[in-house]
Design a protein around this nucleic acid. Structure first.
Length: 195
DNA sequence: TAGAGGATTGAT
DNA sequence: TCAATCCTCTAC
């Protein structure tokens, strides 16, 4: 069952990031379905420097973050990798959850083709990898998660004690905000990206 | 309009 | 440890 708009429109992005663990991310591209369980997320808010929309600054790139919760925000990182975020909160309150890793469940053969990687372990264990495996690109920026292109549905039940809290990755430039414990992942899950 | 740098990855 | 690689933003 797809998550409803009211799930995304809540005001606490950190809570949403935690609750997304165990949910299933699904993509349907060219009529082909592939999906996996979300095992790692990070929260971002306009209130802190790690966020593209820090201070409420709107640009062409991050415009989608200012839409109401329930949109996909896809952008290019390092000129090579598409990163997939879920926009949360209400209109003009720019917050989002970065999906950093998933555990493959549906269309694994499809993912192998798209990734061209011999080791399944590397299929979706990182933000740039999972978008490749699910064939998510910048064309999906602004995609409505109630539609039939990309969506998130209920998946596994996650016990509170399975959730590990940590600092976010790769945002050293954010100063003290880089220390915010806004990264969440499932304990002992092999699909979590490692550092 | 030019130039610097980034929410990464995989190979060395 | 480092290069690949190109879009985005800032400053001139």
């Amino acid at each position: 069952m797809k998550l409803t708009k009211s799930f995304y429109e809540r005001s606490n992005v950190v809570t949403i990031a935690k609750e997304l663990l165990g949910k299933q991310l699904v993509s349907k591209v060219d009529g082909k379905i592939s999906a996996g369980i979300i095992v790692e997320t990070e929260a971002y808010s306009w209130k802190e420097r790690g966020c593209h929309a820090f201070g409420g600054k709107k640009t062409n790139r991050n415009e989608v973050m200012f839409a109401a919760g329930g949109c996909g925000y896809v952008y290019l990182c390092y000129g090579m990798y598409n990163l997939f975020n879920v926009v949360t909160n209400t209109k003009d309150k720019a917050e989002a959850v970065l999906i950093r890793a998933i555990e493959p469940r549906v269309g694994i053969e499809l993912m192998r083709e798209r990734r061209k990687s011999k080791h399944d372990r590397h299929l979706t264990s990182g933000p740039g990898k999972l978008t490749q495996a699910l064939s998510i690109t910048r064309k999906h920026n602004g995609t409505w998660l109630q539609d039939d292109d990309i969506w998130i549905e209920t998946g596994d039940t996650v016990a509170r004690k399975q959730i590990v809290t940590a600092k976010r990755i790769g945002i050293d430039y954010a100063g003290e905000d880089a220390d915010l414990p806004w990264r969440f992942y499932l304990r002992d899950n092999v699909w979590v990206s490692k550092k």
